[in-house]
Amino acid sequence: MSQDAAIIETTLRSVLTDILGIDAARVATFVSTTPLFGALPELDSMAVAGLLTELEDRLGIVVEDDEVDGEMMETFGSLLHFLRNKAL
């Protein structure tokens, strides 16, 4: 894994902790198949807005609303994949 790819993963974990209020120790256990949208009660549609905006700020990316769907947010791995495609 490149250094930049690792930074994106670290950023995603800290944003999940900061925005959703999920304990950092629990977020550290997330693997690529860990389900997110529909599985985390903290992650409702309003929380998605805050989560994406914070990720945009920290990663210096822009996410269009029509790129946001259930598939992209389905798992930790799918969200990470989306962010790496955007940022790298």
């Binding site: 959703l20 209020g21 903290e42 992650l43 409702d44 805050g50 914070e54």
Partner: peptide, 23 residues
């Protein structure tokens, strides 16, 4: 601390204004 934009000072904490639930 995690914000890359210019500042006179950086303080510890998280962006409470974007929290899913008030923290």
């Amino acid at each position: 601390a995690g914000d890359g934009k210019g500042a006179d000072e950086r303080l510890p904490g998280s962006p409470m204004w974007r929290r899913a639930e008030p923290g």
